[in-house]
Computed example of a mutant assay.
Amino acid sequence: MDTSLFHSLEGKNICFKSLSTNDAEEIHSYASDEEVSRFIGWNLMNTLDETREYIETMLKRESAGTHLYASIVLKSTQAIIGTAMIFNFDQKSNHAEIGYVFHKEHWGKGYGSESVALMSDFAFRSLNLHKLHATVVDANIGSARILEKNGYELEGRLKDYYLIEDKYYDALLFGKVQTK
Rank of each mutant, 00 (worst) to 15 (best):
S115A: 14
G99L: 01
Y69E: 02
S113I: 03
Y161I: 04
Y161H: 15
T47M: 05
H130P: 01
S20F: 03
G65Q: 08
Q91A: 13
E34C: 07
S76C: 09
K17D: 02
T3K: 14
S18A: 15
S120C: 06
M1V: 12
A144R: 05
D138C: 10
R61V: 07
N22G: 10
A96D: 03
K104A: 05
I164G: 01
N43E: 15
E25D: 14
T179L: 11
T83G: 04
A134T: 03
Q78I: 07
R52Y: 07
R145P: 00
S76G: 08
G151T: 10
E34S: 12
I86C: 00
I98S: 00
R61N: 13
L173H: 08
N13D: 12
Y54D: 13
A84K: 03
N43P: 09
E153K: 14
E153R: 12
S143Y: 01
F124H: 05
F174Y: 15
F87E: 06
G99M: 00
T57Y: 13
E155V: 08
E25H: 11
L5F: 10
D2E: 14
G65C: 07
A79R: 15
K159G: 11
L118C: 04
E153F: 09
V177L: 11
K131D: 10
L129V: 06
K75H: 09
T57D: 12
M85K: 13
